[in-house]
Design a protein around this nucleic acid. Structure first.
Length: 271
DNA sequence: ACTCGTGTTAGCTG
DNA sequence: TCAGCTAACACGAG
């Protein structure tokens, strides 16, 4: 699920419900989710501290941490990445639980898929729930390697990020070091709205193409955040072998571009 | 049984 | 050295 809109929702839940609560226990025993830290390392770094802020750049989140006690040095930032399927759940003292996204069906909350958790002094918990296990929790995450956040990027920043190199435009949109936050579905939605063939080389884009893509990205992001996720995009449902373009009803085409499955309208986004 | 995947990244290549 | 591409990662869903 998580692309920028879903991560922003998760960040907001952390900001609203997890800050300033005393951390009395940490389960960092999942070696893979907490790589490259050794078990207990994150736990030792966070015990007795509190999360003091919830931040996001692209799909990466991090929380600053307080000192231990009244005047200790601040702790290391706690980085959280939801990967392909991660979700955040936060419970309060009476056990009521909130999450940043859709309801989880069936045994979706099963403890075996909780890969990391903080327990607060009031008995509530923050849990990272991640079936696929491609999410990641780590101290002092690298944020500087990311490009400007896709939400709020300026037209000149967008133009610069896109123009670099010779890759297909879809690959560049997915490049987190160029623009942070665009995933596979959001890239397809943006290219469809902007009427650009995903395989077009970035050096061949005309200024008018870049302008349309900029507006399309902003529309896609705003809409996804308002409607609950990138899966609410207009072209997403048409990403099927029998799919039709929602605007002109032409057939959709499929190929692997930028290493990811890519769908586009054969007429409006013709090569 | 078998293939695919809304993300990241180590490793290879030109 | 760097941009670009591929395979690998883990494991559930269809």
């Amino acid at each position: 699920m998580p692309e920028l809109p879903e991560v922003e929702t998760a960040r907001a839940v952390i900001a609203e419900r997890a800050l300033d609560r005393l951390i009395v226990d940490v389960d960092d025993s999942d070696r893979y989710e907490c790589r490259p830290h050794a078990p207990g390392e994150i736990r030792q770094a966070l015990l007795g501290r509190r999360l003091t802020s919830a931040n996001r750049r692209g799909k990466s989140m991090w929380c600053e941490t307080s000192g231990v006690g009244r005047c200790g040095e601040p702790g290391p930032p706690l980085g959280i990445h939801l990967g392909m399927a991660g979700r955040i759940f936060i419970s309060d003292a009476d056990g009521d639980e909130a999450s940043g996204g859709d309801p989880v069906h069936g045994n979706g909350t099963a403890a075996i898929w909780t890969r990391f958790s903080l327990t607060f002094a009031d008995g509530g918990r923050l849990r990272l729930f991640d079936k696929r296990r491609l999410g990641r929790v780590r101290l002092d995450p690298d944020i500087l390697g990311l490009g400007p956040d896709a939400l709020g990027i300026s037209p000149p920043q967008f133009r610069t990020a896109l123009a670099r190199g010779t890759a297909p435009v879809k690959a560049r949109l997915l490049d987190q070091s160029a623009i942070a936050g665009v995933g596979n579905l959001l890239a397809d939605e943006t290219l469809w709205q902007g009427r650009v063939w995903p395989g077009r080389r970035v050096q061949d884009l005309l200024p008018a193409d870049v302008d349309r893509l900029y507006r399309a990205l902003n529309r896609s992001l705003t809409s996804a955040i308002a409607n609950g996720g990138v899966h609410t995009g207009r072209v997403i449902n048409a990403r099927r072998s029998d799919g039709r373009c929602p605007r002109c009803h032409a057939a959709m085409a499929r190929a692997t571009i930028g290493g990811r499955t890519t769908w586009w309208c054969t007429v409006e986004q013709a090569a």
